[in-house]
Structures are given as structure tokens and as C-alpha cells.
């Protein structure tokens, strides 16, 4: 399968047209020049698009791929209307599938599997909630265990648990070397 069709598959929910828009990139550099990340890291937005056009798979292993904050500045300004930020999300999906997912990202994902929240509540906040006249625990998956079960069902259905390497027996992340 070509790199393009693999990315199209990962980005199915955002649409083929969105993904394919990178074919029209003219390498003008508007994206990199507008990128707040490119000013402080070695990430170059245009280079990512360039490598995708060339079918260069090594882009998947490049840690720079993860330096984008999804701020959409490039996406808004691209004169060829390349849907850059969405494409980056889809390419990251493929990278994650190939095992390029950092430990910290797996941890963030595991919180949602465990609690339904990427940032779960803590005692300090519970106390503050009470002081503010709010319910001690918010009316979310924190309060409704059944809702959490629904989230977990979805996660199993999409194999998100396997993607992240989540062990249901220990309710924690499997040991996995970081690629």
C-alpha cells in the first residue's frame, strides 16, 4: 500500500479530500514561516508535506512530527489550501499504529481508559469544588461508572486499548520500548 493510501485510511473520518490536499503543495514555505513551533524546534511543516509527497516513510519515525501543537495557523494561511493540521493528525495516527507513540502520550491515553478523563480529579480540586458550591465530584464519568463502561466499550471496539498497549488485568500500560 502506498503511503498516501495508508494515510487516507487513517484519516477516513476527516475525509479523503482533506488528506489528498497535500498533493497540491507548492513548497512555498508559508506554513513553516507561520509556525510557532518551527521558531523553537527543528520541526519544519513544509518538510513534512514534502516528504509525504515523496512517499518518504521515514517521516513516521521523526520525533519532529509531534512538535505541532495543532494551532491551525498554517492550515488557515496555506495558499494552496492544504489541510495541513488535519493531515498531520492523520499521519500521526499512522505513526502511532507503527508504534511511534511516546510513553507520556500512552499515559495520557491510559487515564481516559481508567477514568474517562485525560486529566482526572484529585483531592485538592474536590475540596475546592466544595468551597465553590459545586458538587464535590463533577457529573461526568467520575460520578457515573456506567458512563465509564460505555467509554471503555468504544475503546475496545476501535482497538484503542491495543494501540496504546493497555493491560486490562493490571489496569496499567504494558511495558513497551519507546520507538
Amino acid at each position: 500500500m502506498s503511503l498516501l493510501s495508508e494515510i487516507e485510511e487513517c484519516g477516513e473520518v476527516i475525509g479523503k479530500d482533506t488528506i489528498d490536499s497535500f498533493l497540491a503543495c507548492m513548497q512555498c514555505g508559508k506554513c513553516t514561516g507561520s509556525c510557532p513551533s518551527g521558531r523553537v524546534t527543528s520541526y519544519r511543516t513544509r518538510r513534512v508535506i514534502n516528504r509525504l509527497q515523496a512517499g518518504d516513510r521515514s517521516v513516521l519515525a521523526d520525533p519532529n512530527l509531534w512538535m505541532c501543537t495543532t494551532c491551525y495557523t498554517c492550515y488557515e494561511r496555506c495558499p494552496r489550501e492544504v489541510r495541513i493540521t488535519d493531515i498531520i493528525r492523520a499521519v500521526r495516527n499512522l505513526a502511532a499504529k507503527e508504534g511511534y507513540m511516546s510513553k507520556s502520550h500512552r499515559a495520557t491515553a491510559s487515564y481516559v481508559i481508567k477514568t474517562g478523563h485525560a486529566v482526572p480529579i484529585n483531592d485538592e480540586t474536590k475540596k475546592l469544588r466544595k468551597e465553590l458550591g459545586l458538587s464535590e465530584v463533577p457529573p461526568t464519568t467520575h460520578k457515573f461508572p456506567k458512563a465509564l463502561e460505555s467509554i471503555r466499550k468504544i475503546i475496545k471496539k476501535t482497538n484503542f486499548d491495543k494501540l496504546v498497549g493497555f493491560d486490562w488485568d493490571t489496569m496499567s500500560l504494558e511495558e513497551r520500548g519507546e520507538k
Partner: peptide, 20 residues
């Protein structure tokens, strides 16, 4: 909104698995 969860973050979970 009883039983809501993490949104889940568009740039984070969207980067891991768009389907989920």
C-alpha cells in the same frame, strides 16, 4: 451533562486515533 467524559482532546486523541 451527566455521564460526559473527556472531549477527547482534538490534537491529542485526534493524533492517536481519529476513529476513537
Amino acid at each position: 451533562l451527566n455521564g460526559a467524559s473527556c472531549c477527547p482532546a482534538p490534537g491529542v486523541f485526534g493524533s492517536f486515533d481519529l476513529n476513537t
